[in-house]
């Protein structure tokens, strides 16, 4: 099964995007596989609402290990399955917590093997540091897209043209994970690269 990963800075809405995308693709429940470094991987089944409540937080670094879920993306009359891996937020500096550092290392590892990379950003923050590094890496990859999240919030739409210019030739998908807009574009992108 091909793997798609969702990466970005802490608190840009990676997990919410993943869960709401699952819902958008018609999933009522999600089976999430956690892959902590210390201990065996385990799976847990959530309803969409539960997943949102349990996995999404307003503080950074709620996601401490790779969380994978399998999504079915309709393609023609059939479906293709894809493992979507939600990752730990990446930051510029060396993080003091070894657990977070480990999770980040796992995240970068999964970047190396993913076929699809959804790079989530808040358009209000100019691309810099780690975001630029992800973008530059992504521009060499076929299945990379820059996901401009939080489009429902003020000030974001104005910054979009700038992002599109910076991302070229990679595509920019404008979404609001919270308001669930633009998810159709994400689906179309997945479909193209599965």
């Amino acid at each position: 099964m091909k793997e798609a990963i969702v990466i970005g800075r802490p608190n840009v809405g990676k997990t919410l995007l993943t869960i709401n995308l699952a819902e958008f693709l018609g999933q009522r429940r999600v089976e999430v596989m956690f892959r902590p470094r210390d201990g065996a991987a385990y799976t847990r089944i959530y309803s969409i609402a539960q997943a949102r409540a349990d996995l999404v937080a307003e503080t950074p670094h709620r996601t401490r290990c790779l969380q994978s879920l399998v999504l079915s993306v309709p393609r023609g009359k059939g479906v293709r399955k894809v493992v979507v891996t939600d990752t730990t937020g990446l930051c510029d500096e060396i993080h003091p917590s070894s657990a977070v550092r480990r999770a980040m290392a796992d995240t970068i590892r999964s970047v190396a093997r993913a076929v699809i990379i959804l790079h989530v950003v808040d358009p209000l923050q100019p691309l810099s540091g780690v975001d630029l590094d992800i973008l530059r890496f992504g521009q060499t990859q076929e299945g990379y897209a820059l996901v401009a999240n939080m489009m429902d919030l003020p000030g974001r739409a104005e910054r979009l043209p700038e992002l599109v210019r910076a991302a070229r030739p990679a595509p920019v998908l404008a979404v609001s994970a919270l308001k669930r807009t633009g998810l159709g574009e994400v689906r179309a992108f997945l479909r193209r690269h599965l």
Binding site: L90, C91, D92, E93, I94, H95, P96, S98, R101, R102, M104, A105, I108, V111, G129, V130, L132, D133, I134, R136, F137
Partner: peptide, 12 residues
């Protein structure tokens, strides 16, 4: 990266 000897950006 894990040992805190380098940054995420460098790894990428």
């Amino acid at each position: 990266l894990e040992r805190g000897e380098t940054t995420v950006g460098e790894a990428l």
